[in-house]
Amino acid sequence: MNVIEIKNLHKTYNTSQVAVKAVNGIDLSISKGEFTAVVGPSGSGKTTFLNMVGGLDRPTSGEVFVDGVNIWELSSRKLIDFRLRNIGFVFQSYNLIPVFTAKENVEFIMQMQGWDAKKRFERTKKLMDEVGLGDRLSSRPGKLSGGQQQRVAVARALASKPKFILADEPTANLDSHSTENLLDIMERLNMEEEITFIFSTHDPRVMKKARRIVTIEDGKILSDERKEAEVAH
């Protein structure tokens, strides 16, 4: 069952002199529980592509269906609400709210969804335990290492039980130990809870863990490889 269906996606940036085609006709389907890395050189269009899939940047043309909903036909308010309830985000620079504690950062999403305090706390505690930070609930981001902050960000992305998680270069700012640790956590969550992950990355360690690698260049899909298939060959 496809969680995401992308049809003929285009994005053109009109600068003062030329029109730059950042994404140039991408078709892609991603099934539930996939652990996909979108790779490609800088400027290849992978971040633009992920932004359009995540409902953050409107495509020039094409369609993105999430669970059958064409997200770019939604109004601005409904699209934000759709993101809140269906998509988790992990950013390269962690992007936690610095004035909130780790617990409050994770709870924040659930609160916007209207969860009651008790359920929020229980889920936050469970998620923070899962990412190995059950004892750092009261720490503010400034008191956590980069790896710890990114793990809180993963917990935050999982908080709303999203249909998939988009992670834009999640390991770019992490050392190798933190990267391994984070990838292990994400892989485990993917396996155990069947959460769909889509990464953009340059990091060979992420590519190694990914079970599907979509390579983009000049705004087009250059290759789409499934590792299971490789193994089967």
Binding site: R83, N95, I97, M112
Partner: peptide
Amino acid sequence: IREMGVMVAVGMQK
């Protein structure tokens, strides 16, 4: 600005 972008990205209405 970035923090505001994150808040809206993760689901806070503008």
